[in-house]
Amino acid sequence: MDRIYEYLQMGGHAAFIWPALGLTATVLILMLVLSLHDLRTGEAVLRRLEATRTPRRARRSPPDSHPEPNYEA
């Protein structure tokens, strides 16, 4: 127990070393969380937008017909 306490004291510099490591971890994790949040939010919006577009396409070309080439265009 004494050895753990002594280690955590960091030779009397605990007040500088642990905040430095903690702050680094916080910024690194925050960057990952925000990047993943941006990606997931964007992908959800994109899925919604694409879902609203699909029926319009489906109306133009019925599923049993060959979509290409489109002679009407």
Binding site: M31, L32, S35, L36, D38, L39, G42, E43, V45, L46, L49, E50, R53
Partner: peptide, 20 residues
Amino acid sequence: TLLLLRIRAELTSRKIRALQ
């Protein structure tokens, strides 16, 4: 890792803008 994730997020937001 972060750069790839953020580029993917940016590409997604460009696609959203184009669709809108």
